[in-house]
Design a protein around this nucleic acid. Structure first.
Lengths: 150, 150
DNA sequence: TTGACATCGTTGCACATGCAACAATAATGA
DNA sequence: TCATTATTGTTGCATGTGCAACGATGTCAA
């Protein structure tokens, strides 16, 4: 096998992205997992409920977060058990579930969001000028139709 | 709540990285999962065996791939069951397991690696000039000690 | 030599996750 | 209206995963 045939995983973009994602996610998750006992899916659902101001359905969250319906369903149930979220049937369409933060849920988010913002700043500082480049590339990768018909 | 208080998950780097990683990984994984029935951990272990030319231990792989020891152990067992990999005790240190590709394993990699290379090229084309920026940022995020004493 | 400690890989167990099937409700159209 | 189809959210089941404990082997120093 010649050198040209060697496949270098360390230069393989999907692998690099996976490792970087895991590292950054865990670095932050450690903070809120140990302090508040919430997982990444829980964090994502909570953030969306916070920014939407409540009254959102599973379907709405599915459309905006990279989570499957069943993950959201289970996550919401756990959050409900812990008193952070309420679930109620929509009056207009009884298939829909209206999710909303409880007072306790909002209080939790008031503690969590500063952590997340601080972490974001830390990443931007760490990357310095490279942050712009990262943003541009991620915009490309994440934009709709990122999987063109080729 | 004012606009300044809204937390935008879509601008949160750990989230963006996680989604981009999942998307790119799955886009490729779909190809080799359906065609060859191997998972991402299996793919990573195989690649390292290929580039190392065999005679590698679980510990070696752990040091080079973002996988835990137990994941590698289980992955290697599965690959062994499928006849792609052999496990044998090291003669010099009997705690170590020597992993090596079988002929069948090498044949599989000969089919897989072109797929991976083609996908890498596709990503680079898709990103165009932004690819350089992505590389620079990922280098930063992935380099050792990426978690400085902040 | 021997005892304490370190390292390597595996595994039992509990929990998480993915898939596909499902019940409940709504929308559509003959 | 009523039958058919689509949508929403949940769940049973099999599999995957993470953690901590473990046995086996090696290392080192008294």
């Amino acid at each position: 096998m010649t050198d040209a045939d060697v496949f270098d995983l360390d230069r393989f973009t999907p692998y690099r992205l996976a490792v970087a994602a895991k590292r950054t996610s865990e670095e932050l998750a450690i903070q809120y997992r140990t302090r508040f006992g919430i997982s990444i899916p829980e964090w994502r659902v909570l953030v969306h409920l916070e920014s939407a101001g409540g009254d959102i359905s599973v379907r709405d969250i599915e459309a905006r977060v990279a989570l499957e319906k069943y993950e959201i369903s289970r996550t919401a149930s756990r959050l409900e058990e812990r008193g952070l979220v309420t679930k109620s049937a929509s009056t207009t369409d009884r298939r829909l579930i209206r999710l909303a933060l409880t007072t306790e849920g909002r209080a939790l988010m008031a503690d969590l969001l500063p952590l997340a913002r601080a972490y974001q700043e830390k990443i931007e500082k760490r990357l310095g000028a490279a942050f712009e480049g990262l943003e541009a590339a991620l915009d490309q990768l994440l934009k709709e139709g990122a999987n063109p018909a080729d």
